[in-house]
Amino acid sequence: MTSNAPPSGQTDYVTLVSCDGFEFKVQRSSAEIAEAIRRMLDPRTGFYEAIHNRCEFSDITGLVLEKVVEYLYYNEKNKDAKEVPDMEIPPEMTLEVLMAADFLNV
């Protein structure tokens, strides 16, 4: 980023942070598939998230966030695919992922 822009400039990558401190660098275009993330990163809002290109989730653990990130890339990768394979979700994580999906609108 150039000096006149930071920290409010829009970067190609954004950082998603779990409640237990795990950080995931994700392509902005993929991350914004989740409507809630897109709104958090909307520069017009002046949210902390938008300024720093960084979203912190106080309710999502690293393990679940990792699954979410996997999904974001899965979605991006399959956007034009005719046959989309199911993404595996381990049964013991289902409820947590479900709550995260609800929260993130994805």
Partner: peptide, 28 residues
């Protein structure tokens, strides 16, 4: 889950849950 997106106060996750616990898959 709260839905107040104008946060900036998502920070400072409380330390009642140790990372060891959280990183473990918490089962159904």
């Amino acid at each position: 889950f709260g839905r107040n997106l104008d946060s900036g106060i998502f920070m400072g996750s409380d330390d009642t849950v140790s990372s060891e616990d959280s990183a473990t898959s918490l089962p159904l």
